[in-house]
Design a protein around this nucleic acid. Structure first.
Lengths: 340, 340
DNA sequence: GCCCGCCCTTGCATCGTTGCAAAGGATCAC
DNA sequence: GTGATCCTTTGCAACGATGCAAGGGCGGGC
């Protein structure tokens, strides 16, 4: 059974192809009688739009590309789900690309690898330096998700990482922690910002510098979190009484390492993460975390894409989206400094 | 800066458009000199293929659609990652659709909602009945992932659910469990099959029927797993000494509920799940699970799609993919029946 | 020396839809 | 009654690539 084209529908309804197109696309000036007749033919023949042809002619495809480092990482999976849902509400289909954190792949995307098939690109990059050549050359609707901004040409949507980190560490301080380890430094901009927030919180609390410690990890995964904390526990230094993990995956790994070693959480060590992935409500003990509002991020990002499509010169900007501190048992100590 | 078309490249290189196309698509009969010259122009102008135009003309787009119920569920996220990686190796881009388990959406996909934009569809359905009308009418390359088969018209790729469930429950029996609860029955075909495996294992072990118990849940999520086990613990019936969760998310919820109530795992209750999501290596205690080989599933599925594109009448078949039992602490009891 | 055949290159039509702009018809006001 | 205006409908060309098939050029065989 061959494909049904507008031409077939037009013949069946006894009108021109253009009129069928008008009906399909909701053009207002079509007489009710004609609209009715065409609609019947559409239904009867089971017409389905060829999005490729429409995209080729009109220049708009109805696709948005979403590029994330690893879809299997819970945070990115949840982010992708939010984007897909938000896009569906707007009649947009999402193309998902996985960059594997490969700078080469990220660069390829920035240089337009997805341009003509997608109306816009949402990029959650790990590595691309802000002043990359490819970034400069990009001339299509692009919104950065999360941390990286690419130069000052494109808008960015995400939480304020410095403030979020400060909130998380500040919470640990409130809970009585005085020797807090930051877990997760790496080369990323994101890592720098969360490190900065950590520093600001410790400064504000007048924690002595000798008690500052930033532990680097390669990837923000459970595995690296566990390995880093194992090493920390095996080491000769004094044990921390708080761990601020740069994301929840690291925190989950940290909790596993602490559990193995019989360290009590939160009594011996309080733990807090960032992302509030679903998993975090089910760890042992449940993990305190910073919860970004993924739906807001997805909505804003799509709106910003739409804006870029419309006007030529839209002022790039940073959209700081809301977040909440979700307090769970991993950081909740018996001795409350003040009532919640 | 406008888009660079083949025409622009052709003019720049002083050849015809067709020759540029020949170079780009790797047509063999092009003189080295010409090829060289065209290639230089391609690079210099930064030509990038318009996939829409190519797709419109050639009928193939290089896209494959993947539809899963919820991308935020770890199992589906990991599956999607595997599919995206496998597709990337073949130069295919993946369109991800989230059905939210809505039968209407699944039906729409089966009735060809993605056809002309994707060369084939991978559908991981929850609800569509095997003999649905839409399923019968589908006339495009389609492969079912996971459990549901749609009539006998399309191939299915996934583990043998009955056998996998039997293996999981058999393992609990080996560990000495005698009153094993199955957690997760629902209306799905998948649920029926795992229930059947549970029954077979208990029968084989000659467990008395009074000790069989299948607990229904609405969704296979952490939350429903926790709620169901809480209810089980609050109830008046005798406690089980083993829990077979139909997937790892349920198992994670079950572990959380057991932890809350101070039930010791695996001493009081041993727990096993299916899927072996990454999270399962980090639960308290680490979760024993059945690990399907997602890479194999993704590879097979894409191969089957390609086959369907080629020949008209490919015999539909069920591809049972390999799986392993990954034993972790949640089921490993002190008293070993036999050495591993 | 001539013809045949292979290799390389090319032009044209086409995929299915929408932008553009104008034609035909009906309605309404004066 | 007549002109103007608006509403409907239409035809044509074009988006950028590839399928098809033929044309030109060159080398080799006899």
């Amino acid at each position: 059974m061959a494909r049904v084209r507008m031409r077939d529908v037009a013949e069946h309804a006894g009108v021109s192809v253009r009129t069928v197109s008008n009906v399909v696309s909701g053009y207002p000036h079509v007489s009710p009688a004609t609209r009715e007749r065409v609609q019947r033919s559409l239904d009867e023949l089971g017409y389905r739009m060829d999005y490729l042809a429409r995209g080729l002619r009109s220049g708009r495809t109805g696709f948005v590309a979403l590029a994330v480092p690893f879809l299997a990482e819970p945070y990115f999976a949840e982010l992708a789900q939010a984007v897909i849902s938000a896009a569906a509400r707007r009649g947009i289909t999402v193309l998902v690309e996985s960059t594997a954190g490969d700078p080469e792949v990220e660069r390829r995307i920035l240089s337009g690898g997805l341009t003509n098939v997608a109306d816009g690109v949402l990029l959650s990059a790990l590595t691309v330096p802000a002043d990359d050549d490819a970034a400069r050359a990009a001339d299509f609707p692009l919104v950065m998700l999360g941390e990286h901004s690419v130069g000052d040409r494109f808008p960015r949507v995400g939480i304020d990482n410095v403030a979020a980190a400060r909130t998380a560490v500040g919470h640990l301080v409130e809970q009585g922690c005085r020797r807090i380890v930051a877990l997760g430094r790496n080369g990323s901009e994101n890592g720098r910002q969360r490190t900065e927030g950590y520093r600001q919180a410790l400064s504000a609390a007048q924690i002595r510098r000798v008690n500052w410690l930033v532990v680097p990890v390669e990837d923000w995964t459970r595995e690296h979190g566990r390995a880093a904390v194992r090493e920390l526990l095996d080491g000769s230094g004094p044990l921390p009484d708080g761990i601020f993990a740069f994301n929840d995956a690291l925190a989950v790994g940290a909790l596993a390492a602490l559990d193995e070693s019989g360290v009590r959480v939160p009594d011996d060590v309080a733990v807090v993460g960032i992302d509030d992935i679903q998993e975090s409500a089910y760890t042992h003990p449940p993990l305190t975390s910073i919860a970004p509002d993924l739906d807001v991020i997805a909505e804003r990002a799509l709106s910003l894409l739409a804006e870029q499509e419309g006007a030529a010169g839209v002022a790039p900007r940073e959209e700081a989206t809301p977040y909440r501190l979700v307090v769970r048992a991993s950081s909740l100590r018996a001795r409350p400094g003040s009532p919640t």
